[in-house]
């Protein structure tokens, strides 16, 4: 269907935002979002709607946990 991707909010005008990933800009309606967003935040955009805000700290924590799974010696 329409894969939701994390995109950075670059413009906000009321209930409408413009979000960007890899240089591609897309309109994203904010009418389904509970959280406040600001320019620079990341949101998951699905079929033209922001459906969730991405928590940057949680993202970094998950990555740190994952990185524990390999040690450089082990992987060469």
């Amino acid at each position: 269907m329409c894969v939701g991707v994390p995109m950075m909010v670059v413009e906000i005008d009321g209930d409408n935002a413009v979000a960007e990933v890899d240089g591609v800009k897309r309109e994203a309606s904010l009418m389904l979002l509970s959280d406040e967003v600001a320019v620079g935040d990341y949101v998951i955009v699905h079929a033209g709607f922001a459906i969730s805000k991405l928590d940057k700290e949680e993202a970094l924590e998950t990555l740190a946990l994952m990185r524990e799974a390999f040690s450089p010696e082990l992987m060469g």
Binding site: V5, P6, M8, V21, D22, Y42, L54, K56, A59, L63, M66, R67, A69, F70, S71, L74, M75
Partner: peptide
């Protein structure tokens, strides 16, 4: 960081495979 590429790291995938 675009919160995507880091989560495609081949080395992490392999490390997790080993753990599993």
């Amino acid at each position: 960081m675009n919160y995507r590429d880091e989560f495609r790291d081949r080395k992490i995938v392999q490390g997790l495979a080993q753990r599993i």
